[in-house]
Each structure stands twice: as C-alpha cells, then as structure tokens.
Design a protein around this nucleic acid. Structure first.
Lengths: 186, 186
DNA sequence: CCTACCGATCGGTAGG
DNA sequence: CCTACCGATCGGTAGG
C-alpha cells in the first residue's frame, strides 16, 4: 500500500464519517487528498471498495481482539474488562473508521454485507459464550439472558465514539467498567 | 394534515430509515406513495422539510415524555424505570421515525441542527438532574458521574431499535430494567 | 496524475 | 396530480 493510497483511505474514512457514505462525493475526497477526482481511480477501484475495506478491517480488529483475550488465561471478570477496553481502544485508535463501521455498513453491496453480518455475528457469539460461561460458574448474574447482556454492553459503549476526551481518560474508563461491573457481576 | 400528506410522511420515514436520508430519492418516495415525483411538491415543501419534521416530532416526544414523568409524584427509582419505558415505547410506536431521528439527524440543515441539539441537550439535562437528585438522596450510586450514567443508559437502549419482538416482550423489558437497576441503584 | 467527458440520477419548477 | 423539463452533480472512463 503506497503512501498516497493510505492517504486516500484515511481521508475517505474522515469524509464518510462526517457526511455519511452516500452524501460523500469522490470530488470531496479528491479535494482533501489534493488531486483531481479522476486521479483517485489510479489508486482505488471504486468508492464502494473503500467502504468495504474500512468495514472489513474494523471487523477484523474486533475479532482478532476478542480471540486474543479469550485465548489468554485470565479470570472471566478480567476478560470482560479487557473486552470493554478493546471497544474503547479501537474507538481511540481508529476514530473515523469505527464510526463508518458502525453507521455506514448498511451501504455495503450485497456480498460484502453478508461478510459483514457474518463477522459481527461471529464476534457476538464469542462474547456471548464468555457471558454464558460466567453465568454457569456464578461470576455473572443469571437473571438476564446472555445475548441481552451482550447487546446492552456493546450498545452502551457506542456513545463514546467521537468523544476523544472520554476515551483518553482512565478515570472515565473506570466508571464505564464500574457501570457494567455493577450490571452483570454477582 | 391531509391523509395524503400523512402517507407521504410515513413512507418517507420508512424510506429514510432503510436507505439513509441522502441515498433516499424523492422518486423512490413517490413510487411508494403511488404518484409522480413532481406531485409530491403539492403536499410538501422539500425533502429537507420532511427530515426536519420527523426529527422535531421525535425530539418533542422525548421531552414531553420526560416532563410528564418528572412532574408526577413517584419514587426516583420508579421515574427511572418510566424513562426506560419511554425510550422503548417511542421505539415501539414510531419504529421508522426513531431510527431517522437517531441516525439521520446529521443531515439536517444548519438552523434545524441547532434546534435538534438544543432539544437533545434539554432532554439530557433533565435526565441528568434526576440522576443527581437520586445520588444526593442515596438512591443511585455516587461512584459514577451523573452525565456518564445518562450517556450509558441512553446508549444502552439503542440496540432495541428495529427489534420489534424485543420491544413487545415484557420479560425482555424487565431484563433491560434489571441490567440498569443493577448498574445504578444502591 | 491531468483534461475532457459520459450517461445516469438528483431535487425541484413551470404550466396546465 | 401529471407531462415535460431544468441545471447540478454523481461515479467513473478514455486517452495521454
């Protein structure tokens, strides 16, 4: 990946985040990169392809991240905290891409949409298994369905997207973990 | 508001939800209503105006809803549960509009955007005051900032949008309330 | 990487 | 509510 191509992907993520994918034009993007719109196509295949790659790479970050957490020997409680940090770290390190991944995936073309849903499903299933394991061993509360707990946790973290100071504050991160700790740990 | 105009707003909300505002065309909308695109403009002023009214009316639902809850004499804990039901009820009763309100507000024109942010801010401030009151009286946990609690709660409920069976299930609603109860009630 | 350009589609108007 | 149409803009290609 050349420097120019990287620059295009970075600016595309910024632009898609700000305007939304359909409202972001290739001419907007070219302006930000500092070249003509037609010149973009020497580096990229299509507008769609940029969206596909942004969404795929974010999905991979989540799945690789959770795999690493689950494969290390730790308490289930600590693994849950590491998953929370995984979400916050991705938001911190890829502030534009993560918003595109979260808000613009519905504009993916059909085949990439199937991949996206599969990747997300795979992630949620791993997360759910962790919760179920904790419920069986008495670490996590049993009164709520594991799938609901996963949905509540993932959803609850999304307000932090785009909130740089929140993501940078260890104190705020601790409060987020405390909220979820109170919600699910026995 | 004539029947035809109502129909246009309903179909517009459905369409904006499905495709996103920028990708939804007035020709799409006209097809769903069963008239020509140009005929839409006998009933509505512009595409933008539809978005503005959808977002305004949802904002009003939240603000009127919370005002009613806060003005009735109830325990703070019960008021919190009523706020949760307010969110779930709006999602249940206006399944398309609420998604447009949540996901498409950034496409509002400048002046409407100011109104939108003000309405949302107003809602969040009232919610925050309730949490602070509860923290002072020892009903809600003090270890987390009130604003963070509000953000976590509002965000945590958003996964239920578009999940009709979740919104229709009293049992699931109870689990959602239990999650939040555990998180914030002493 | 640029100039020049394509067909398609956009929101919206004129006039009836 | 329709036919006919407008200028603007879209993603993308040809050719150099």
């Amino acid at each position: 990946m050349t420097q120019r191509k990287k620059e295009i992907y970075i600016q595309a993520a910024n632009l898609f985040k700000e305007k939304g994918y359909p409202a972001a034009s290739m001419r907007d993007l070219a302006d930000r990169v500092g070249i003509e719109a037609s010149s973009l196509y020497s580096h990229i295949k299509s507008k769609e392809q940029i969206l596909i790659e942004i969404c795929q790479s974010c999905g991979d970050l989540f799945n690789k991240g959770i795999d690493e957490i689950l494969n290390v020997e730790d308490s289930l409680k600590f693994k849950l905290f590491r998953i929370i940090d995984l979400h916050l770290n991705i938001a911190q390190n890829r502030p534009s891409s993560i918003v595109v991944f979260t808000d613009e995936w519905k504009h993916l073309p059909e085949s990439a949409l199937l991949d996206f849903r599969q990747s997300r499903k795979s992630y949620e299933n791993k997360f759910e298994q962790l919760i179920k394991l904790g419920q069986e061993s008495g670490v996590f509360k049993k009164e709520m369905k594991a799938k609901l707990i996963v949905n509540m946790i993932i959803s609850s973290l999304k307000w932090t997207l785009n909130k740089k100071e929140t993501l940078n504050s260890d104190k705020t991160r601790d409060e987020i973990k405390l909220f979820i700790h109170n919600a699910v740990i026995t």
